[in-house]
Design a protein around this nucleic acid. Structure first.
Lengths: 190, 190
DNA sequence: GGTTGAGGTAATCGGATGATTACTAGGGAG
DNA sequence: CTCCCTAGTAATCATCCGATTACCTCAACC
């Protein structure tokens, strides 16, 4: 297989593993097995585990930005309110990609690692700028959108879907993501 | 020193280290040094690193719940709207405790570790119930409050305060936490 | 048919880390 | 004094993991 294709495979596999176990908790060996290659090859392709994680973060952010951009570009004359709904739906669709939002979340919580913190900050700001500039959100709209997104990520991270028997958990999940509640439940059950 | 006092010391130190480095990324040795005791003693006091992390999570959640309760009890006749402001302020004050919210956040993202995920889910639900039942929030109010909290945590986690020279970052931070913007900036600079 | 370079792997190393074991200081009770 | 319990530590172990090294395979090309 061409090295570039293999690289894509490894990034995808790594996104799943990092999303599940976090940056420090993931081993290059687990990623290699998930991608069907040997552990030394993973390390040699990216140099270090940190560089691999940064590649995963970048991939996740690019995907998020391009999905949001697509919504904006396919509704060129839409108001911020209409775009809010469309971009929100695009965000919900990203949930299907198990590791994507969780890998991002793991990056967001690791500001103490210099390279990871820097990448996370710049990525987060890029999303904010897209909402403010290109989608025309007000600062408050952008804030509320991001806040809602972080809550969704958190609920997925703690696997709140496992508690759907509890009426409070069900109410919370359904209030946060009425359309995606069922997906959240399934994601939590692996 | 009495063992119980030493235990408090270790939990406090561990909250700082876990908040900074995460669960897996923190070593019992670093925690021991931060607490001024030997590494084996930390392990023996709590049995395992996981048990120590669970103790830290519990401490953080109890603190959060008791601070929120205090607001409710000191305004027995207040409306949900008034309590919203008071509890929000209480949340902001928790930021001063460096590791507290970040340790919680690290717990929230580690649902894949069974014991940690279970503790995080139950803790999160307890907070939700307090908002809904005792503070009288509507489901939407509780959702928005929690979402806002998760965004604050995220901004602290990625040390967005380091980017306060960037006008977009400044706008975001000041829009999210107008009163605490300066604290967030200082926290980011260690 | 040899050479070469790209795409890999097996074996291994060195350091980090959670946990265990064995030990000790010290102070209060009898 | 001596016993013994509480509060600790030093030394060490076993394991894991990221990284390195040395090697292999096989198609393309001359």
């Amino acid at each position: 297989m061409r090295a570039e294709d293999r690289r894509e495979l490894v990034i995808t596999a790594a996104m799943g593993v990092f999303g599940e176990r976090g940056y420090v908790g993931s081993t290059t060996d687990a990623i290699a097995r998930a991608a069907g290659v040997s552990q030394p090859y993973v390390v040699r392709m990216f140099g270090t585990k940190e560089a691999l994680f940064l590649a995963v973060l970048d991939r996740a952010l690019q995907r998020l930005l391009s999905d949001f951009s697509a919504v904006i570009e396919s509704n060129p004359t839409a108001s911020a309110e209409v775009l809010h709904a469309g971009i929100g739906a695009a965000y919900g669709n990203l949930l299907a990609d198990r590791g994507l939002l969780l890998s991002l979340m793991h990056g967001f919580v690791l500001g103490s690692v210099p390279a990871i913190g820097a990448a996370a900050r710049l990525g987060f700001l890029e999303v904010y700028r897209l909402l403010r500039r290109r989608a025309g959100f007000s600062a408050e709209q952008a804030r509320d959108f991001l806040a809602h997104g972080m809550l969704v990520n958190t609920l997925v991270g703690i696997r709140m879907g496992l508690e759907m028997d509890d009426p409070d958990a069900r109410e919370l999940v359904e209030c946060v993501a009425p359309i995606k509640a069922d997906l959240i439940r399934r994601l939590a059950h692996d």
